[in-house]
Amino acid sequence: MNIVVCVKQVPDTATERKLRSDDKTLDRDAADGVVNELDEYAVEEALRLKEAHGGEVTVLSMGPAKATETIRKALAMGADKAVHLSDDALRGSDALSTSYALAETLKKIGFDLVILGSESTDARTGVLAAMLAERLGTPQLTLANKVEVDGSAIAIQRVTDYGYDKVEASLPAVVSVVEKINEPRYPSFKGIMAAKKKPVETLAIGDAEISADQVGLASAWSEVVDFAAAPPRAAGTVVKDEGDGGVKAAEFLASKKFV
């Protein structure tokens, strides 16, 4: 089975994240870049499927040159090779352009199964997997907390508000995973060393037949009008429980008409 895992480098949630004042895009230099945490679950799931069914795991990442750190991490976990889609023309791409660029690349490199994390911790749109399924015309198996493959049949459990749906499809397909699906492995020392020698193919947009007028900030389908730091919340009242903390909280709720 030919599995492609889409991996994104994101600014570390623990550091202060900013938008740039000039073009209102994410300031990627302001914060340390890390692997989008949910993508680690996607890599893990791909590796488990490969271990069970054979095949190959390819990491696909779109991002600036510095995203190679993220790609190496996925390779160190055990992926076989990587494709790095990197081109200045891609900067500022929104979800529509990103899905277009990734879909074109996927068509070029081929796949039986594409696996993504359910969302990225920076943009948090949660739409990319659905968009890829739409563009590729393949089944959408998103928000999975369980994936099973049997020959060309694939079944997942899709997390819903009320519990989950059991969903069935056949390959090729696009899967997105939630964090409850597995426990991502840590790269071993051997894995880290091996990753340095694994092939990483860098593609510019022309290599993947991506047209420049469909990507990048200038071609985005939406724009940021303006932005500002959120005003801090007004300081609240904090009391120490002296045996009547519950009563005091009830009084506060009553003053706000909640009881």
Binding site: R233, G236, T237, V238, V239, K240, D241, G245, A249, L253
Partner: peptide, 24 residues
């Protein structure tokens, strides 16, 4: 979490929460 609280109780939830429920 206290930084964003409008009202906070520093205390053991096993004491405070049942008392709050009872009071409500």
């Amino acid at each position: 979490i206290f930084e964003i609280a409008d009202f906070g109780v520093v205390g053991d939830l096993f004491q405070v929460v049942p008392q709050l429920t009872e009071e409500i």
